[in-house]
Every structure is written in structure tokens, then in C-alpha cells.
Design a protein around this nucleic acid. Sequence first.
DNA 1: ATGATGTTTGAACATATATTCATGAATATT
DNA 2: AATATTCATGAATATATGTTCAAACATCAT
Lengths: 112, 112
Amino acid sequence: MSADTDNPQGSCALSLSFVDEHTAARLAEIFKALSDPTRVRLIAALCAGERCVHELAEQLEMSQSAISHQLRTLRQLRLVRSHKEGRHVYYALDDDHVLTLFAQGMDHVQHI
Amino acid sequence: MSADTDNPQGSCALSLSFVDEHTAARLAEIFKALSDPTRVRLIAALCAGERCVHELAEQLEMSQSAISHQLRTLRQLRLVRSHKEGRHVYYALDDDHVLTLFAQGMDHVQHI
DNA sequence: ATGATGTTTGAACATATATTCATGAATATT
DNA sequence: AATATTCATGAATATATGTTCAAACATCAT
């Protein structure tokens, strides 16, 4: 069996198999953002629309500080964006890409 | 602004926003599997077809032990499957779901 | 059998991570 | 002004994770 020509996964597989270390690191970073249950629940909550920090803290029944720390992680990785309205800081999914990625993960979980 | 009726993300968002803790944990687990650069590179390598451990170790220029440890993580999360042929253990992506999830991540990275 | 090859496993260590608590900054209310 | 609310930040701690090394296991060849 020749491993080099063996390609059971389809035509797009070839380009995916050439992932340089930098890209691999960035990919890992994105997935790492979603590798924590709290952050998963935050993303899920934001699928329904934007929310401010204390709303998210209530919904997840966690301290405001903990939520803020996690939102910071999500913010740094551009998975969410925020804007201020008075005292409140509203968070929302950065774009539909995040939702698609998240939904794909859900698919996988439900598929197993 | 009524947060409950605000839904700028589309119709599928509602169901995604109701993610119980167990599902969140499983989702996080899946994403965690892809949250390490080595594992990302492994998945990428396997996109081209099945490979045995020492081939992957050569390609990634890492010790066989390190590769084996990471493959175990991926195996436990059903992202890869393996079968033995003589002394060799061949690994492959478990199904197309993995490839789709991975490709979606690539999309996101290249989109930012 | 003996030795060589391919893979897995366990233990130990260093690093990374999430969480909590305390504090500070900005805004709103009285 | 004084106070309360909302959020961000830093430090400390406990836990989790990746890596390395050594040893064990399985398979094959001689």
C-alpha cells in the first residue's frame, strides 16, 4: 500500500495536509478557545444574540469575575467582540464563522 | 433593548443557545483535542490518508513516544481510529466529520 | 531462543490553565 | 459629592496538560 497516493478523504484533503507550524499553532489557538465548558456555554449563549457580562454571569450561574476572565480569552482570539453602552459591556459573536464552527462541533458530538 | 428577542445570528441560533452542561463538556472535549499544535499537525497529516506511527513521527520530526501519546488522546476522543498490520499501527481520521470540523477551523484562521 | 523493530505505557517534571479573591476604574444614581 | 453598579485586572493557588525518559509489550527475522 502506497501511503503517498492513498487519499480516501476526498479532493480537499491534499491542501489540508500541508499545514505549516505557524498555521497549526493558530488553528490550535482557535480550538483552544472552545476547549473549555464555560467558554462553550458562553458561545452558545451568545448564539441567541448579544449579552452583557452580568447577564451571562446570571445565566451560567458563575461569578462575574470568572465570566469576565473567560470573555477576555474569547475576545483576544477574536471569537467575540464587545462594545460599551454606559456601564454595560455587550458581547456578541465576532462573525458567523464562529457560529458555523460551533455548530459543526455540535454536529460531531451528536454524531458519535 | 430586549435581549431575549434579539437574535441577529439567524434561525439556527436558538437551538444552539440551549446547551446543557453535559453537552458543553463534551463539546469542549472535542475542541480540546484540536487545541494542541502537534495534534493539529497530526490531523492535517492524516487528511492525506492513513499513516503509521513512525511515519508520523518522521514527518513531524518528533519522538515516537510523543506522537503515540498524542494519538492516544485523539483516539480516545474518536477523532482517529487505528488498526494493526503486523508491527505497524495505522491511524486514520475517524470520519469525514473530523475533516469538516478541521477545514472549518482553517477557514476561520484564514478569514481573520 | 535471541535480537531488532514498532508501539504503548507509566512516572516525573515543568508549564499552562481555570478559579477565586481583592482591588481599581468607569459610569450611573441619589 | 457620595454611593452603587458594572466590568477589568493582578496575584495566588490548585489542577490539568504536554513532554521526556525508561521500561514493557508485541511482532518479525535469523
